[in-house]
Design a protein around this nucleic acid. Structure first.
Lengths: 210, 210
DNA sequence: TAGATTGTTAATCGATTAACAATC
DNA sequence: TAGATTGTTAATCGATTAACAATC
């Protein structure tokens, strides 16, 4: 749908960061910013910022810099944050509940429309304004409703079987907190893994001999 | 304290992944594995696995492969997972509570010893077996107790000021969930940022035109 | 016009992959 | 010994940085 030039992952991973900072600048009423000033602010070289942004076209103006609001809006557009997505959370433990109540989902344009769990202790309770459904209903739910994204916050062992069901029922993206390598051969499904434990281990490594 | 050869970040970031999989292999009673087989399992080239591991010394054996348990133990040692760390959580909202109750901390050898918050609704309540303390006590607490790591799950605006206090009180590592660029000039403090929102945006990007 | 700063090309750097000799 | 697979060097690839001409 967009510019057919393939964007590299490193570039893509930096876009949200740019967007975050531009949002803040915009909120603070800053009108323009040069790649040099932005560079200082976010710890990325000016050269890289310009290089990255130019993957998507010339958003700046020579001799002036970048118009903050315009650039922010363009990034929002590119990232697809302006679109609406629907999501379900599968596994309503502590983490699932936290994400249900967090601002992260809505801030990316993602509407939470249902939560699922196995445990009778949780099913039927209300979380983030929604009644938690039984996992047994998840397949039908996804077939009957358009679900873009599934947030996987369930036990490791259940991750792959459940995700397979969901992918077959039309779910296009998985936000995966289960520390499992998911793979859907040739199914045009996106997976974004969040390995919180890995991040903590890296921190422990850094801390241990300091 | 360890081999002085500086290890590159990309390598370091893969180690937890290796460790995770070796743990699982070990749990499943697998005794040996070749870089080739491991490669298939975790989606990293065999060449890279060997290259990475050799940063730390020869853990394998020609013609045989790697002894799973030995390699796992070595990685645990390198990552520092066998050591004990103490941690506090600052900001006991949904995410803070989730992390307090999660297995992530203990699995890296991190003991949660205190939680802090500002809100009178939360202070004094019990979370994960600990009574939430008032944030006003955090400075003294860190001076009086050895605190290795602070988990930052508080509002963005409070992140930097609070972290500065903590760093001055001897905290060596920050597991930062606040979407803020923390920086401590020349203070030998490690920061590990978890940008969950960025990850979700990347997912939205991938999903949008599929 | 002069100054600033982009867009973009070229140079550098580092990370990944390939290849193979060493060796179990 | 022959087969397998590592440890390690060399080749490739890609990403980052530097430089500068274009231009506002």
């Amino acid at each position: 749908m967009k510019n057919e030039k393939k964007i590299s992952t490193p570039v893509l991973r930096r876009l949200p960061k740019y967007y975050r900072h531009l949002e803040e600048l915009s909120r603070n009423g800053i009108e323009k910013i040069s790649s040099k000033d932005l560079s200082k602010l976010i710890n990325v070289t000016a050269s890289q910022i310009r290089q990255d942004l130019n993957c998507f076209g010339g958003f700046g103006q020579q001799g002036y810099g970048y118009h903050v609001q315009t650039l922010r809006d363009n990034l929002a557009e590119i990232l697809g944050v302006t679109k609406r997505y629907t999501a379900i959370i599968v596994g309503v433990g502590h983490l699932g509940q936290a994400l249900a109540n967090h601002t992260t989902l809505p801030r990316s344009g993602v509407d939470l429309i249902a939560l699922f769990d196995v445990s009778p202790d949780v099913v039927g309770t209300e979380v983030a304004g929604l009644t938690v459904k039984n996992i047994s209903e998840v397949n039908r739910f996804c077939l009957e409703n358009h679900v873009d994204v599934a947030v996987l916050t369930l036990p490791k062992s259940e991750a792959l079987p459940v995700a397979t069901v969901l992918a077959n029922a039309g779910v296009k993206g998985f936000w995966n907190f289960t520390n499992t390598e998911l793979s859907f051969s040739g199914m045009n499904v996106s997976v974004e893994n969040v390995y919180m434990g890995d991040s903590l281990m890296k921190l422990c490594y850094d801390v241990q001999d300091s």
